[in-house]
């Protein structure tokens, strides 16, 4: 019988297995162990939401709690990666990348190219993304497009526990810097996850629902909203194909193009702010490469161009929902050629 575990446990298990397999894997971050230097429980937190809880008992000092100095420790992880280690650095909330962005985009991302192909920087930077946690403007952003914009970085954002484990193991083994985005509202989401170690390759989107009428492209939490939309549409006889991008850089545009060649209609969904995001990128690429296949204009579903609001009443309106995605699909079904 398949085993069901949460995304949170899938992350914990991936790190655990890689630390056991490869002694160069170390991990660092704020309170990833917890209780450091105090008189109470060690491993008191295991990260702010308990994701790394228990790893200290197994791997001891290979997990390092850090001072509250993201520039220094994210940079140190990058430096150690350039010198033979495979560090996993936890940034907690992706919003904090503003504090340490230079180390990520001017240093880690550029070593390989600037140094004429001679450097390898196998660092993984894990961070929570996304809204819906009532965590307000500075703890709720996606920011994924900021990273995909930068050559040299790989960007991952899984939607299921299975992909999370496989993609995280791939990220740790990968020899390039990886920004690993974990949607905080999916931590409790459960799914089948094999106990054994396995990888999910980068640059391969997954078709999570087959359909002939309209293609819906999403990633992270939005995959689940897209599936909700597909269920609504199915009741009306519209069969939506739902594509989970899984990795945003590299991007599997071929799977999207194939789907659009079949359906002729495209809805791009993104939880990131609407300007210059993943959805606009996909739209542009489809318009360039499969214009002839399109029967109607492309639809996009994103939050409005505003910071994430605190009030639950506003935040619930901010995050794109299944009904909104279904509406977009209906709009494209009504328009254009048949």
């Amino acid at each position: 019988m398949a085993r069901k575990i949460s995304m949170k446990l899938a992350i914990n298990e991936a790190i655990d297995q890689e630390m056991s397999r490869d002694p160069t894997v170390i991990m660092m971050g704020e309170d990833i162990v917890g209780g450091a230097g105090g008189e109470g429980e060690k491993d008191a937190w295991g990260g702010v939401l308990g994701v790394t809880k228990g790893l200290y008992a197994k791997h001891g000092d290979r997990l390092l709690d850090t001072p509250l100095s993201e520039s220094a420790y994210i940079g140190a992880a990058i430096g150690a990666a350039a010198c033979g280690m495979r560090p996993i650095a936890e940034l907690m909330f992706i919003d904090f990348m503003g504090v340490c962005f230079d180390q990520i985009f001017n240093q880690a991302a550029k070593f390989r190219y600037m140094f004429g192909g001679k450097a390898e920087t196998p660092v993984v930077i894990r961070a929570m993304v996304g809204a819906g946690f009532r965590a307000a403007a500075q703890h709720s952003q996606m920011l994924t497009p900021l990273f995909t914009h930068i050559p040299g970085l790989k960007v991952v954002c899984p939607s299921t526990p299975y992909d999370t484990k496989g993609l995280l193991i791939q990220s740790i083994r990968d020899n390039d810097p990886v920004i690993f985005c974990e949607h905080k509202n999916l931590y409790g989401f459960e799914g089948d996850v094999p106990e054994k170690s396995y990888t999910v390759p980068f640059g391969e989107a997954s078709v999570v629902r087959d359909g002939k009428d309209v293609s819906i492209v999403a990633y992270g939490l939005m995959v689940h909203r897209a599936l909700e939309a597909a269920a609504l549409l199915a009741k009306e006889g519209i069969e939506a194909e739902v594509i989970d991008l899984r990795t945003l850089s590299p991007l599997d545009i071929d799977t999207v193009l194939e789907s659009v060649e079949k359906t002729g209609r495209l809805v791009c969904v993104d939880e990131a702010s609407p300007r210059c995001n993943i959805a606009t990128d996909i739209s542009a690429q489809v318009a360039m490469q499969a214009f002839g296949a399109l029967k109607a204009q492309i639809e996009m579903v994103t939050p409005p161009h505003v910071p994430v609001p605190f009030s639950p009443a506003l935040e619930d309106l901010y995050i794109p929902g299944g009904p909104q995605i279904a509406d977009a699909a209906r709009r494209t079904m009504k328009k254009g050629k048949t």
């Binding site: 309170d31 209780g35 230097g37 105090g38 709690d65 850090t66 001072p67 509250l68």
Partner: peptide
């Protein structure tokens, strides 16, 4: 004395 769960003396 603390930053989250970490004691001041560890972090500084």
């Amino acid at each position: 004395g603390y930053a989250e769960s970490t004691s001041r003396d560890y972090g500084t």
